[in-house]
Design a protein around this nucleic acid. Structure first.
Length: 263
DNA sequence: TACATATGATCAT
DNA sequence: TGATCCTATGTAA
């Protein structure tokens, strides 16, 4: 379930559970066998996320680059003692924890220069300190494409995915079909601020929650799944019940509320 | 069993 | 824009 908050959380969890001592690395599936052998027995020196990209630096100097893509998962083993399934690309283990990676779009060892190239292609990451909001605003001002499509462009802002783009624009009251360059400075600032706010919540909770607990009438902990989002994957607006409009932007479907997201 | 679908990105045309 | 890759899950047949 990978938008940026997931990867940031993952980077932290890997550090806290595997950091400090040598890690056993294997590739039960075999497709990353040579790479796993190179980091096997090393310690994690650094584990960080940039947008949806995960970088784990090892004491040997190798950098593990993982991108989960649409269906990839990197999670603690359900049963650490069971024989690993043969879909597991990479398994990282010490005496405290076992992590299993399946279905990644990318799992490779890269050099620091290659890491820099990847990061250089990415826009500011709202979950990183010192993220450059002005650079984001300037990208919007330059783009005549719909804001709904622009928010998915990782070169503009790194980490937003299909859920957050829909939810952010709802919370900001902005119709996704509007040209990015048509947003006022205040609107662009609002989009950035809400992106930071909502993704931080996602990072803290480990799941995407964009609804206001006061509006829902329940604490976040007691919210049903159906109450967590305003528009994503819904037929009707969580706020007013109006039938949502679905459009395809950036090659992927998204919904908006015609009442709360005016032209 | 088969098929559709999923919080993504890349490559070919 | 469309095809393709990667895996797991839910629903239909």
């Amino acid at each position: 379930m990978p938008e940026g908050h997931t990867i940031h959380r993952l980077a932290r969890s890997l550090r806290s559970t595997l950091g400090g001592e040598p890690v056993r690395a294997t590739s039960p599936q075999g497709r990353f066998g040579a790479g796993a052998a190179l980091i096997d027995g090393q310690r994690i020196e650094r584990s960080e996320a940039f947008g949806k990209y995960l970088f784990v630096r090892w004491t040997s100097g190798e950098i593990l680059h993982v991108h989960l893509g649409l269906i990839g998962k990197f999670r603690p083993a359900l049963d650490a003692t069971a024989e690993p399934r043969d879909t597991i690309r990479l398994r990282l283990a010490n005496d405290r924890a076992v992590w299993e990676l399946t279905g990644p779009a990318r799992c490779e060892l890269i050099t620091p220069a290659e890491r820099r190239e990847i990061v250089a292609q990415l826009g500011p990451d709202p979950l990183r300190r010192n993220a450059d909001a002005e650079r984001f605003r300037a990208s919007l001002a330059r783009s005549s494409k719909p804001i709904g499509a622009v928010l998915l462009d990782q070169r503009v802002v790194a980490g937003i995915g299909n859920v957050y783009r829909a939810e952010i624009l709802f919370v900001c009251g902005i119709r996704p079909t509007r040209a990015a360059s048509a947003l006022s400075v205040e609107e662009a600032a609002l989009v950035w601020d809400e992106t930071v706010r909502l993704m931080r919540i996602g990072l803290r909770l480990g799941r995407i929650v964009t609804t206001d607990p006061a509006e829902i009438g329940r604490s976040v902990g007691r919210m049903a799944d159906d109450d967590r989002l305003y528009v994503y994957h819904r037929q009707h607006c969580r706020r007013c019940g109006t039938e949502l409009v679905t459009v395809e932007l950036g090659g992927r479907p998204m919904s908006y509320c015609p009442v709360h997201q005016p032209r």
